[in-house]
């Protein structure tokens, strides 16, 4: 196959991800060295004599492992959603946050927290409002007769701001002792409080999002062409578009429900991946998955390792992402 020459990127990025995965265990206030780490991890599968303190067990399995897996899952979900939204909307400037999907999902989650729903309830509400947001953006943007690329971005910002306002309303109404701090802290975008239970709750919806997209990855290429071309090449665009929106919104909502608003990653990573391996989804999706999880894992390591006080993740991703978006805006018209 022609693509074999690009396949080596996938191997390289897999190795990098594995390295970053192991390094991440060593970052944090309590030191865990490599030997201890390997022993602790392997002890789950093989009988190994325990010669390490219990604290290490707790730190590795209750604190760091969930956080590392969480960063990888959230990074993957937001990046993949961005990659497929960009193709579906034929617009390289969109991502779950720019389209307002994240804000919609965040409003849903805030509402669910306010109404004291359980984790599954939070995810479902989050998913529904994510779908409403992307549906609204899609409907409104098709009615605007201006440059479709920019009008989609603007519609996304507008719809997003409506949901942000509604979220503020929930915060205003929320109980200041209990729910307000929970909502506020969670909205900032952080993986600090992620628990093994959270991970269990989001694995399934995220896999339900990823698997169909991987199965349909060739068709995503055709979907990214002009509507008329895609149809006359034999693609049932209406059906595929619904599947794509469902999958990416499901992943976004699952991520938002545990990590709050982590912006920009859905824009930055698909672009970076496309620069490296090109637009063919057959290779773009695996690359985006690997880079997305590595990127968020790295940023999260910085968030928790750089200073003694933890920096919310959303702040760091914005500091990287917003300038990146400005560069894209400035170069987009010329190309």
């Amino acid at each position: 196959m022609i693509k074999t020459k690009k396949k080596h990127y996938v191997y390289i990025f897999t190795i990098i991800l594995i390295l970053v995965f192991f390094i991440s265990f060593g970052i944090g206030r309590y030191p865990v060295n490599v030997v201890q780490l390997l022993k602790v991890l392997l002890s789950k599968f093989f009988p190994i004599d325990k010669d390490w303190p219990d604290t290490i067990n707790t730190i590795v399995f209750q604190v760091r492992l969930p956080r590392i897996i969480g960063a990888m899952l959230v990074g993957t979900s937001l990046s993949l959603s961005g990659a497929v939204y960009q193709g579906m909307f034929k617009n390289p400037l969109v991502s779950p946050d720019i389209l307002g999907v994240s804000s919609g999902a965040a409003f849903g989650a805030a509402l669910a927290i306010y109404l004291s729903f359980n984790t599954v309830g939070i995810q479902i509400t989050s998913f529904i409002f994510g779908l409403i947001a992307v549906g609204l953006v899609y409907l409104i943007s098709t009615k605007i007769k201006e440059d479709p690329i920019i009008s989609l971005v603007i519609t996304g910002v507008l719809v997003g701001s409506i949901f942000t306002a509604l979220t503020s309303l929930i915060k205003y109404l929320a109980d200041t002792d209990d729910k307000l701090p929970t909502i506020t802290f969670w909205l900032m975008g952080s993986l600090a409080s992620i628990s093994p239970r959270d991970i269990k709750a989001i694995v399934l919806p995220i896999l339900l999002g990823i698997i169909p997209l991987f199965i349909l990855r060739w068709r995503l290429n055709v979907l990214s062409l002009e509507e008329g071309e895609a149809k006359t090449l034999g693609l049932n665009t209406a059906r595929l578009r619904i599947i794509v929106i469902m999958c990416s919104t499901l992943m976004t909502a699952a991520s938002v429900s545990v990590s709050g608003m982590i912006g920009w990653i859905g824009l930055v990573i698909p672009h970076l991946s496309r620069m490296i391996v090109g637009p063919d989804y057959r290779i773009l999706l695996p690359t985006t998955l690997l880079l997305g999880s590595t990127y968020l894992l790295l940023i999260d390591n910085i968030a928790r390792g750089l200073t003694t006080v933890e920096i919310p993740l959303g702040i760091l991703t914005s500091l990287v992402g917003a300038p990146f978006f400005i560069i894209l805006l400035l170069t987009n018209k010329r190309s």
Partner: peptide, 11 residues
């Protein structure tokens, strides 16, 4: 068609 898809850089 008369128009061409050109959003992404396919070969």
């Amino acid at each position: 068609p008369q128009t061409f898809s050109s959003t992404f850089q396919y070969t």
